[in-house]
Amino acid sequence: MAKHSPNRFDAVMLPHLDAAYNLARWLSGSPTDADDVVQEAFLRAFRFFDGYEGDNPRAWLLAIVRNTWFTEWRRQHNRADATPYDDSLNVDDQLPGWADESGEDPEKLAVRQDETELVHRALATLPVEYREVIVLRELEDMSYKDVAAVAGIPIGTVMSRLSRARRLLCTAVRAAQGGSEQQAIRLVKTPPAGPEESKRGN
């Protein structure tokens, strides 16, 4: 009975409210949906608190947030991502619709201080399964084990998905930075051009 005391739940779970909101916001893309998801998830967490085993409240709570969003919101709101997702795809295969230039490493890709918004938008364009692992691993700084627990996938899948996600994110960021860098060279109807017309935009 002591376990169900609200103070204990508050003390253990409320510190992870920001993490819950962060995940919900990145999954749903909407602050109002994130609000709803977090409230519902906290209610569920409270009701299931007796079943909580006790050493990793953040992972436990985020798993509930993720499942709440996945089962309730995604189904209802039918947010089908533009890119069809298939885990069985060989990691090196190209996803349809993505010009995947492998080999880019987030550790090496430079971004400026004022490019936060650009990175934010690039991350938001990733298919949710990739976005999710980036948020959990990079933003939330979770171990592979915890990422696997929250996303409900095996650890090996976490690693391969992360590796893919990082490359996709790099591509998206570089595309946003470079303007039309990733697209085919456009023919411009101007007189024979000087260096300004170079295909590598700034």
Partner: peptide, 14 residues
């Protein structure tokens, strides 16, 4: 900074 650092520096955290 690198993209990796940007991801981890909290500026994308909601």
């Amino acid at each position: 900074s690198s993209l990796a650092e940007k991801l981890r520096d909290g500026s994308l955290y909601e």
